[in-house]
Structure formats: C-alpha cells, structure tokens
Design a protein around this nucleic acid. Structure first.
Length: 479
RNA sequence: CGAGGUGUAGCGCAGUUUGGUAGCGCACUUCGUUCGGGACGAAGGGGCCGCAGGUUCGAAUCCUGUCACCUCGACCA
C-alpha cells in the first residue's frame, strides 16, 4: 500500500458513499466538467470519445437493419407539439421554450425538442403516400432538452445526447416486430459491447411512454442495487398517424394509417458503464468502447533501448487496437494509477528486464492479473486479454445482478426486502395501477421496472392486494 | 419545488466565532537526481475569498439580497 499522504487524488470508496464515488469518478477520469448552465455538462474529450465509440457501434447495428440517418429541427412549434394529447401532457412539464427571436417576440413559441415524434410525424405526413414508401426507417443522432429539477452527470441532465429511431410501417404486426427487434439490438449491444447484462421486458401502463401503446425497456442493475432505465422501444400503433393525418394508399387502393415505432438510448449509458463496472480505483471501461484499449508504459526510460522497444511495440499494436504509448516523464507508479483511474482495460509494461527476456507484462484492469508474455506473441496475447477483460466484466456484472435479484410473495416480505436488500424484487402483480402506486409509496420509491419477457410463476396472488395475479414484475429503485 | 449543507489558487481545505496586508497540501513551471505500484531536492508562478448591495477608517470575516453546486425527498431517459 502506498503512503496515505500521497493518495490525494484518491476517490471516495464505492461502498462508503456510492453517489460521491460516482461524482468523483466522473470528474477525476475527466469525463465531464460542470458548466455555467444548470443541469448541463461539458463532455470532455475522454468522455466524448466513449460516446463516439458507442455511436459507431450502434450506428452500424442500426444500418444493418436498414435504418437511415436524418436530422430534424431542434425547435417544435407549440401547435405541432399539441397535436397528440397524451404526448404533450407527458412532456409539457419539462419543456424549455423559445419566446423571443433576436429582439422580436415570436407569434408562436417554440419548444426545444424533448423528443422528436412530432417532427418526424410532420415530415412523414409529407413523404409517405403509398405502401411503396413503407417502411420508413429513420434514425437521428442529436441532443434533446428536458428541464429537470435535479440533475447528475450522464444520468439526468437538462440536455443530453442520444439517438432516436422513428419508423413507420404498413401493418401493426410489422411495427410491433420492429419495436422488439430494436429492443433486441439494444440488448445485444449492452451485452456484446458494454459487457452489461440486463432485464428486458414491457413497461406497465403507468410507466409507459407518453402517447405509446406499449413501451419496452432494458433495465441494467447498477452495483449498488439501483436500476437504470437503459433504453426504451415504443410501439405507437396508428395514434400519432391519426393525429398528424399521415395516410398512405394501400395495396387495396384504400387509404390507411401507417403504424409507428420509436426507440432511443442516450449518454446515460455512460453512467451505466460507470456504475456497473467501476471500482474503488476508478473507471473500468468495456474494451469495445474504451478510448484507449491498451496503454504501454515503459519502465526506466533512461536505460538504453527501452524507449525504442516501447515505440516498436506501439507500432506493432496500433493498427489493430486503440493504443496509447506513454513515454512521458511521470513515474511508472503514477502512470499505473492514472490508467486505472481512466479504466483502460489492458496495460502493457515494458522494462529492461523484460527486454532481456524478450517479454512484456500485460495487466488486466478488471482483475489486476499480471501476465508475462513473449514479445513474439504480443498481438495475440493482447487480443486475448481484451476479450478476457470483456468476458470477466460481463460475468462479474451478471453475478451482481443475480445476487441483487430477490423474490417476494407477500406484502410484508416485499416491504422488508425493499428496505433491507437493494436490487430487483420479483413479485406477482394483479395489473392494477393502485397496487403499483401503493407499493411505491410504502417502500419509498420502489417502482415497477418491467414485466419480463420470461415471466416466472411465483404465486397466484398479487403481492399487494392478494387478488389474482396477472404478471410477474421486476420492481426496484431507479436512477 | 420542499428540507439541510457548501462556495477562499486547477483540485482538496484552513482562516469567519472575536473585522486589521490571503494561507497550507497537491497540481503547475525550471533545473538536477530518480524510474518494476501514485519518487526526491532546490528555485519559481498563480486569488476581485461565488456575485451584488450595505455597515465600517478598514470586510473572506458582520448585515441584506442573489446565484451556483452537493445530499435527502416529490417529477422524469
């Protein structure tokens, strides 16, 4: 252990104060900075690079499914926003409005988009005329604004970056399929790219998106037992189409309303990465999105041949991996800690002793395991280490989620579990909103997360009212 | 928006009770020695004490207002 006095930059322990730990990580890993505007954050280069990697991966997945990127205006006229009643009621409380342009008061105020269903619909009304125009599979990468009362970097900010897919289909079945397909894309992305397991399922009526017929969600579990809504996919039916008068001529030469979906994930995923994988030494980044996958740290750089050999390794690896060669004059120990703080998945150490033996040391961020590797097999060893880190991170996250998933079959058991064991509670539910609200109230905020696709039969009765149960529901506190 | 707390150098803090030239640690700059888990020495640079008023010969310190941030609740991706 290093001298305590030197640990000035040390972060708050994760188990001591999770909220403080989170803030420390976000700042010390240089992901964000606070800005002068309430609830808005500066995303710094290291944080933005994670987002860019997320974008690249997701964008590829979207395009593989046939989606095209577009860009919609950031302003929504009040009259347009009001066309769909449920939708406007859901978003009105958190809209930001522009009322003055230059020095002129506007005739109609403009909402800074909190989401773009209405804009897409306005456009779709113009460009959809025949069944041959369907499906329309659009996506946009942009920022949206929701005037939040309390904010936290990445998890809840007044402005945040996201993607929103908006699609139109000929039939309800096709639209429903799209909704589930995109949820699956998110689920695969979380597992394959972010190394995060999650519960997927359907939101209850109470929790579904404003204006949607059905909302599906992906719910990863954070290390402290709090859930996060990690992405949603909505099925709208033809409700918006009717409100916005979007019609097409069908194969039967009749006018029809198309069926709609929307789906989105945001920079909140970076918050999930931090809270699922991070530890007391800082970030632990999934190799697939880490801005630096491999940090090469040369030891005793004044010794002959070390810098040159390090450079050689860098040149060998940089074609295949995102590599940082750190030949700065900081001490090796400082660099080790620094790259751990920043969550770099694999570190390569190279010193005079290694060079003598034609080897280097590979250190995994997730386990700290040190592996001595012959320089002859460097590329292969790094490739394997990155894969092992990914797999190890996923396993650890899965174990955490399983350990933090509890079952309650009676009301008392539910309340007691909510109090004593943070995490998901699996419990039966009758389907009534009153029971949802009551459970939330008595537990101080445990809400229904979703009705999972794979329901289990835990009992016949609703955990709250004792009436016949309709569904098994995952419950939990959320960010 | 309710309850509590904090604003002093890039970061973390002391100083405020009892008004009297703005301090400490880390970070930063230069030079030298170091280098396998946050190195050491020497010499430097950096502040409208959150902001705006007021009281006073004099305010980081007292008074009023205001803003921001943090923690906990209610609303939400």
């Amino acid at each position: 252990m290093a001298d305590k006095k030197k640990m000035v930059e040390a972060i708050t322990s994760r188990d001591t104060d999770f909220a403080k730990w989170y803030t420390d990580i976000v700042k010390k890993a240089e992901l964000v900075d606070y800005s002068g505007v309430k609830g808005c954050m500066v995303i710094r280069p290291y944080g933005y690079a994670i987002w860019e990697n997320i974008q690249a991966d997701l964008d590829r997945r979207f395009k593989e499914k046939g989606h095209e990127n577009v860009y919609m205006p950031m302003f929504i006229p009040e009259s347009l926003l009001q066309k769909e009643k449920d939708h406007v009621e859901g978003f009105a409380p958190e809209c930001a409005w522009v009322t003055i342009g230059g020095s002129e008061k506007l005739n109609e105020k403009l909402c800074v988009r909190p989401t773009s269903e209405t804009l897409f619909c306005e456009h779709y009304a113009k460009v959809i005329n025949t069944y041959r125009d369907l499906p329309k599979l659009y996506n946009q990468w942009c920022s949206v604004v929701r005037w939040e009362k309390t904010t936290r970097p990445f998890l809840r900010t007044s402005e945040f970056l996201w993607q929103e897919g908006h699609t139109m289909h000929e039939t309800p079945e096709e639209a429903q399929e799209e909704t589930l397909t995109m949820l699956k894309v998110y689920e695969d992305f979380y597992r394959e790219t972010l190394a995060i397991p999650a519960v997927v399922g359907k939101k209850t009526e109470k929790e579904k998106f404003a204006g949607a017929l059905a909302t599906y969600t992906i719910e990863p579990m954070m290390h402290n037992g709090v859930a996060l809504q990690g992405g949603t996919s909505h099925y709208f039916g033809d409700g918006f189409a009717k409100s916005f008068d979007i019609t097409y001529t069908g194969r039967d030469n009749q006018q029809h309303y198309p069926h709609q979906t929307s789906w989105g994930v945001s920079t909140r995923m970076i918050g999930a990465i931090i809270m699922v994988h991070g530890d007391d030494d800082g970030l632990v980044l999934p190799p697939k999105v880490s801005p630096i996958q491999v940090a090469i740290v040369p030891i005793a750089t004044h010794k002959e041949g070390v810098l040159e050999k390090g450079e050689e390794l860098y040149n060998r690896l940089k074609g295949e991996f995102r590599v940082k060669y750190d030949d700065s004059d900081q001490s090796p120990g400082w660099k080790f800690s620094q790259y751990e703080m920043k969550g770099v998945p694999v570190r390569v150490e190279l010193g005079p002793k290694d060079i003598e033996k034609n080897q280097c040391v590979i250190v995994r961020r997730d386990t700290r395991e040190k592996i001595f590797v012959s320089l002859d097999n460097l590329e292969e060893a790094v490739r394997k280490a990155l894969q092992d880190v990914h797999d190890g991170m996923y396993e650890k996250a899965l174990k955490n989620m399983q350990e933090k998933t509890h079952v309650a079959t009676t009301f008392d058991e539910f309340v007691q579990t909510a109090e004593e064991k943070p995490g998901f509670i699996k419990a039966m539910w009758c389907g009534d909103k009153e029971c949802e609200e009551k459970l939330k109230e008595v537990t101080g905020g445990v809400k229904s997360r979703c009705i999972p696709f794979e329901e289990e039969h835990l009992s016949d009765k609703c955990v709250c009212c004792g009436k016949e149960a309709k569904h098994m529901v995952y419950w939990g506190k959320q960010y």
